[in-house]
């Protein structure tokens, strides 16, 4: 028991090999499932927020199983911030664009004047754009919250 504890403490990078391998196998599927949840948000349970949380959880799993540095190599802090702001911009930009084209705020059918898909088609397609924006923003905020809190604001070692 003592020996096992010492050996675990000596291990440099994150958790044991079993956990690292399982996370390595699962992370691509988690991200694919997150994208599926975002894209299918308007037919089935799910949507932008849930899909974004799943996408963010994949990076949190990487940071927990390996190291915070490893997950920050895969998605840098700058890219993360840009993605989050882009998500918020997509949301607000679509909503304001609807208002500019003569509808109400978030009234997608007004975008019919820009590209003629028909008001019903735009109502379906507009919610898809909104979901993508929400998903990007939520993913970025989840990941950056974990990075900040997990490393005490230092952004170096992590848990």
């Amino acid at each position: 028991m003592k020996l096992l504890q010492e050996r675990t403490a000596k291990l440099k990078l994150g958790e044991s090999l079993i956990i690292q391998t399982a996370v390595r196998i699962m992370v691509p599927f988690i991200q694919l499932f997150g994208l599926y949840v975002i894209v299918h948000g308007h037919y089935s349970p799910g949507g932008g927020f849930q899909g974004g949380v799943i996408l963010g959880a994949s990076f949190v799993a990487l940071a927990l199983a390996f190291d915070q540095k490893f997950s920050m190599q895969l998605m840098s802090e700058r890219v993360n911030g840009v993605l989050g702001n882009l998500g918020a911009l997509i949301f607000v930009g679509t909503a304001v664009l609807c208002a500019l084209f003569g509808g109400l705020f978030l009234d997608y059918s007004a975008l019919d004047k820009l590209i003629p898909l028909g008001p019903i088609g735009w109502r379906s397609f507009g919610i898809f754009i909104i979901e993508v924006g929400v998903g990007l923003a939520v993913m970025s905020i989840m990941v950056s919250l974990f990075w900040d809190i997990g490393s005490n604001g230092e952004m170096d070692e992590g848990l």
Partner: peptide, 24 residues
Amino acid sequence: FVFIASPTATHALTKAALVAGVEP
């Protein structure tokens, strides 16, 4: 997915308990 994830979760819990010093 469950077949990969749940044994790994059990392993992680056991290892965490071992590191924290839970006596058998």
